[in-house]
């Protein structure tokens, strides 16, 4: 199904504008992530799409050729995975998954067959008779997903589906979720505040800030060509190099840096993995913090920018605390964005 939403906004009775006029299109079978910090309006947008919030007048939501703007949630045929899963404690795993099918008034054997099929896809056969309270966090998450997709919804919505899990489990389930969603071949929108999660699961990411979609594109596009300081910072944690541009030279506290083009009127950003400690580097600084992270070190260097400049160091002999180091950054690794934007 192709999903289309235009001119959609949400203003609360107290005047708070949770969502400014927004446009979003999701192609058939595409998985789109709404990524942003808490309070950016991503959950509001998802709830509007589901039909759980009423958007402001003038909003338009289309499922293929159907205008569903004024359709109540129970008639939109969407599947939703809630942050807290919202599994019904009064029903078994099987009954939870079968509930949506029961609402579609399918016959008993049909429901049985479909539930069994979904249980198998999600590897939940063992738990089908269990009470939902007797499940682990990861199992609950899969039941919630199974319940949402069992009625074959036109659109699958996921609200922070992994945030209720602990960190170690989250990573393995993230990859599993990506595989499952592809297997279902379903159009899906999911909300997250975790950029790794968005990048791992989504075909396309829409970054949101202050009630607006600020940029939308594939993970690679967002990473390589952010259109704003916010996106550069939120996706891939780019650091701003605060200095003075003259022509294609950026002058920082710790030395000069060659830019890929004309720099005046621009802010310059760089990512930690592009900051290399190199004896031939043009910048000079002093090691302030060293964090060993197994595969690499994170090294905080002072004296180059007003804040610490972080560098990822891969190798055996990391510099020591207080040591003076030279730093090199390739011109093509620098991100130039027009100044004046936040």
């Amino acid at each position: 199904m192709t999903f289309r939403l235009t001119n959609t906004a949400k203003t609360y009775p107290d005047g708070t504008r949770a969502l400014l006029s927004t446009k979003l299109t999701v192609k058939n079978g595409e998985i789109v992530s709404l990524l942003g910090p808490s309070g950016c309006g991503k959950t509001t947008l998802l709830r509007i799409i589901a039909g759980l919030e009423t958007p402001d007048l003038g909003s338009d939501i289309w499922f293929d050729e159907d205008n569903v703007t004024s359709l109540p949630v129970e008639r939109r045929n969407v599947g939703m995975v809630f942050q807290s899963y919202a599994l019904f404690p009064n029903m078994s795993v099987r009954a939870n998954i079968g509930y949506g099918l029961k609402m579609q008034k399918l016959s008993k054997p049909e429901i049985e067959a479909r539930v069994s099929e979904v249980l198998e896809m999600c590897q939940l056969q063992k738990f089908s008779a269990r009470a939902v309270n007797a499940l682990s966090g990861g199992q609950r998450q899969r039941v919630a997903l199974a319940r949402a997709i069992a009625p074959r919804p036109r659109l699958l919505l996921l609200d922070e589906p992994l945030s209720a899990l602990d960190a170690s489990l989250r990573e393995s389930l993230r990859d599993e979720l990506a595989v499952l969603l592809r297997k279902f071949n379903i159009t899906a929108i999911f909300v997250t505040h975790d950029q790794d999660e968005a990048m791992a699961i989504a075909d396309r990411v829409a970054v949101m800030s202050n009630g607006r979609i600020v940029q939308s594109g594939t993970p690679e596009e967002l990473y390589r060509h952010p259109n704003s300081a916010f996106v550069a910072g939120f996706v891939g944690n780019a650091m701003r190099l605060d200095g003075k541009c003259t022509g294609s030279i950026l002058t920082l506290e710790g030395g000069g840096l060659k830019l890929p083009g004309e720099g005046s009127g621009h802010n310059v950003f760089v990512r930690a993995e592009d900051v290399r400690i190199d004896d031939n580097g043009s910048l000079c600084g002093q090691v302030e913090t060293i964090t060993f992270l197994g595969t690499h070190y994170r090294i905080g260097i002072k004296g180059i920018t007003p804040n610490l400049l972080t560098s990822i160091f891969v190798g055996q002999s990391a510099p020591k605390f207080g040591q003076s180091v030279k730093v090199a950054i390739k011109p093509e690794a620098l991100i130039l964005l027009p100044a004046g934007e936040i």
Binding site: A50, N77, V78, A86, Y99, G100, Q104, A148
Partner: peptide, 8 residues
């Protein structure tokens, strides 16, 4: 809300 998204 969960039940509503399932069509109840």
């Amino acid at each position: 809300e969960g039940a509503a998204t399932l069509g109840a």
